[in-house]
Simulated assay, not measured.
Amino acid sequence: MHKKAKVVPQPKVNPQQHAKMAEDMKQRLKVEELAENIDELEDVVEDVFPLLMITVIISSLILVIFLIRMYIRYSVNNPSKNRMDGRTVLITGGTSGLGKATAVELAKRNARVIITGRDLVKAEAIARNIRKKTGNQQVNAVHLDLGSLRNIRDFADDFSKSEKFLHVLINNAAYMGPKSVTDDGLERTLAVNYLGHFYLTHLLTDKLKKNAPSRIINVISDTYVRGKIDFDDLALNKGYSVYGAYTRSKLAQVMFMLECHRRLFSSCVWSFGVHPGACNTELLRNYPGMMGNILRVISRVMFKSPEDGCQTIVYCAVSDGLREFSGKIFSNCKALKPSDKVKDKDVAKKLWNVSAQLCGFKDETPPEEAAAPAPSTEEKKEQ
């Protein structure tokens, strides 16, 4: 007979203990799964982190550039709606950039606009374009090379004979580029930006006085505060830099503007300096080297348009109530206080006398401290 297998009794499992064991098992599985997920996440982060950081950096740079661009391009529209019927405006460098944009705006206000340029064919084409665009047939072009004192004299003679009126003179033309000299042997940046306008203004002063109240507007730059004038080295033989030559010419322009105010205010000829801001014009076209290429790209992306930049120039040309602001610098249609750097009257007088000698005439009109004469009938109308 076979013996029956002995049955070993199974221990009874407490249901609560079984449930606890199952729960412990689940927790261990969850921990193991979580650890695996963390490992996978760490691998992903290691792969993606450099790209993520690059994205953050690029995004931050784009935001910074955008904010800087907004700051540089900030401008206000000319609040004055005045028209210029019956008034004549002469604009140097009117074939492009700020000069052209200013000519368009003034032509829209029915001014008689005369633009100048070294290339007469180009200037006449621009004048035709402005006439067509604005419907104002009183827009003309004439040849003027501010780098030639003889040409400036000839221009002023012809202008005085052919034009009966001149109410606003806008000294806008500018050069910025490598060191070179004019036909007169003068350093080109100072000659074009300052001395040419100095001589032109001198030759047209009588015309401005006869048509008073009239205005002289010098398009300057806030970089004038970094300029230095060495009367012993006007040719910059001791060292030339494009930026240094430009800031020097703008400093001379501001001092010239203040001296015009002192000398001509009593004749109801008012003088203003206008800082249009950084504008995308052809000023940088001659800037040499890699820096020039970089600046030209930056100007296209970051700088304000000539149409925005010219608003303050137009404001100073047409707005009422500016008599008391003669001798001031304007930016975004608001008067600014000139830097103390340009308030030395002895230096300004010396600059004027040296400039007169370079232009070949003797200064016979010593400056008088500007006083506020009683406004004339025409001034009262304008105010």
Rank of each mutant, 00 (worst) to 15 (best):
N136S: 07
E307V: 06
S96Q: 11
L351M: 13
K250S: 13
D43F: 00
I170C: 12
A156F: 01
T223D: 11
D340A: 12
T88C: 10
M291R: 09
N286P: 01
K228A: 09
R109T: 01
A5T: 03
K381C: 00
D233A: 09
V181S: 00
K380M: 15
L166A: 05
L204I: 07
M255G: 01
C333M: 04
F265R: 15
E42M: 03
A35N: 13
E259V: 00
Y199R: 07
R263H: 07
A156N: 04
S221H: 06
S96T: 12
L284Q: 06
M257A: 02
N293V: 15
K4T: 14
D320S: 11
K334V: 02
K207S: 13
H167I: 08
E379L: 11
K334N: 14
Y240A: 02
V254C: 03
G273L: 08
N211T: 05
A348F: 06
G327R: 05
A141Q: 09
P50G: 12
E369S: 11
L149K: 14
F330T: 04
M290S: 10
E259F: 08
L351P: 12
R263F: 05
S299V: 00
D222K: 09
I57A: 13
D47E: 10
D340P: 08
E105D: 12
G99H: 07
L166Q: 01
L195W: 05
K81W: 00
K210L: 05
M290T: 13
K238F: 02
V89Q: 09
I58T: 10
F272M: 00
E163D: 14
M84S: 10
T55C: 15
E364R: 07
D43K: 15
S180Q: 14
I57E: 07
K328R: 15
P366L: 09
E307P: 07
F361N: 12
A252Y: 11
K207G: 05
F155H: 05
